[in-house]
Design a binder for these strands. Structure first.
Length: 427
RNA sequence: GCUGAGGUGCCGGAAGCUGGUAAACGGGUCAGCCUGGAAAGCUGAUGUACCUUCAUGGUACGCGUGGGUUCAAAUCCCACCCUCAGCGCCA
């Protein structure tokens, strides 16, 4: 959410920003927002003076009563004023809701370094690490390999839980756990606090974190309860300090969240969904940062380095993309996607790193001050970056390190976490 | 899940809870005075929104949240959230 004052006072800046996004709808919404806001302010002022009148009449009534005099005239007048106030209050509430919805739909201000473009094809590759693996045989997809090795059961996953659920088996489970522990160990060493968040959260904090449309498209709701399954630990962690004031001298707060992630994936039609790539739940270690505004751009690069360090230690071939204006979404001011090489020769997303500046924090009411007792200075900045999503990282390992005999070599750094196993192979 | 107590400012914490302008007392922070400088002391300020202005000033809102009754709600009524204590259930 942007600051409504910024929208009012610096409309041209907001307008220019929207033009870059290849989304003319949003410009219309901005105009509507300005109209609603003007109307709201006018009515607010009007209603405030009506309330002043009512308060005065109320005092008059009280005074008359104390002196034992009837106050018929004042009561009648007060009733009239009150009716008007109630009417206005209803209108105000409507305008306020409408204004808030509109304000929420206005996306964040983009950083100057974000490339302007229409869709993912206009995003710019900023670097590439490693070399694509060379095979002297036809490389298989991870799903083929895992099924050949009897490490996954997709059919029974579908029978019991539905499409895009699965059973992981045998050493593949160890690999999943090893990746999580490995990521936590690395992040812990560079100063992150490990967090295991609640896996279900209430509607109100969730509204502060995601777009309304995401409730339908992404999150599972528990029937009959005010509870939603989290789609990533980013959500409960960002909502953690909702409506709180943080001490500036204790920032930045660095959290390494670990949790399963639950996603409906309603809008996944036409996207790549093979095997473990896009499933209804997966495990993930996430980096989440609360910081001062002046710290966020450096930290954005820092946490990018962290996740790349993980992929490099695993020896994976990947590239980093600066996501363009048409594909960046509403919340981030700048976003890097990290994409890994798959056996069909294409790069696909393994993680994404967003600097949300104060956009998320304003919505959640997370502010900061320089120290205890000092006045509140503003909203914190928040950043989130995948450290390691196990499902996609496992795909990368399996497809990039597959062998002619159908086995898969385990990266050396993971072996201490899985009883020294060197290969996934047929038992 | 049940029973009981509670939720008040930047923080602690009291009174009001037989409806009539909420905030004693203590602490923090900021500004001013004092000082060679500081501490202490004294004085004032210290939430949000809207209008107005060069400065400023004015109004409304604010007692966990959302409703209701009333001219008027911290106070009365309803629903919900959370904390603590006890009981119950439970890996």
């Amino acid at each position: 959410m942007l600051d409504i004052k910024l929208v009012r006072e610096n409309t041209s800046l907001v307008r220019e920003n929207l033009k870059k996004r290849n989304n003319p709808e949003k410009l219309k919404l901005l105009d509507e927002l300005l109209k609603v806001d003007t109307e709201w302010r006018k009515l607010q002022t009007q209603t405030n003076s009506l309330k002043q009148k009512r308060n005065q009449l109320s005092i008059d009534v009280a005074r008359s009563k104390r002196m034992g005099k009837p106050a018929k005239k004042e009561l009648a007048e007060a009733k009239k004023v009150d009716a008007l106030i109630q009417k206005n209050d209803k209108k105000l509430a409507k305008l306020e809701t409408k204004g808030r919805m509109l304000l929420l739909s206005i996306p964040n201000l983009l950083h100057g370094s974000v490339p302007v473009g229409e869709d993912e094809n206009d995003s710019i590759e900023v670097r590439r690490w490693g070399e694509p693996p060379q095979f002297d045989f036809r490389p298989k997809s991870h799903l083929e390999i895992l099924q050949d090795l009897d490490l996954i059961d997709v059919e029974r996953g579908a029978k019991v839980a539905g499409e895009r659920f699965y059973y992981l088996k045998g050493d593949l489970v160890l690999l999943d756990l090893a990746l999580q522990k490995f990521a936590l160990d690395v992040l812990r060493k560079v100063g992150f606090t490990i967090i295991e968040p609640p896996l279900m959260i209430k509607r109100k904090p969730y509204e502060g974190v995601i777009d309304l449309s995401d409730f339908e498209m992404v999150t599972y709701k528990i029937e009959g309860e005010d509870a939603y399954m989290i789609a990533t630990s980013e959500h409960p962690i960002s909502a953690m300090f909702m409506d709180e004031i943080l001490e500036g001298n204790k920032l930045p707060l660095l959290f390494a969240g670990i949790s399963p992630c639950f996603r409906k994936e309603v809008g996944a039609h036409g996207k790549y969904t093979k095997g473990l790539f896009r499933t209804h739940h997966f495990n993930k270690v996430e980096q989440f940062v609360f910081c001062l505004p002046e710290q966020s751009w450096k930290l954005h690069e820092d946490i990018q380095r962290n996740c790349e360090l993980l992929y490099q230690s695993l020896g994976l071939h990947y590239r980093v993309v600066n996501v363009c204006t048409g594909d960046i979404g509403n919340i981030a001011a700048k976003k890097y996607d990290t994409e890994f090489w798959m056996a069909d020769g294409k790069f696909r997303e393994i993680g994404s790193n967003s600097n949300c500046t104060d956009y998320q924090a304003r919505r959640l009411g997370i502010r900061y001050r320089e120290g205890e007792g000092k006045p509140v200075k503003g909203f914190v900045h928040t950043l989130n970056n995948t450290a390691l999503a196990t499902s996609r990282t496992m795909i990368a390992i399996i497809e990039q390190f597959q062998q002619r005999d159908g086995s898969v070599v385990i990266p050396k750094v993971l072996r201490p976490y899985m009883f020294g196993i060197e290969k996934l192979e047929k038992k």
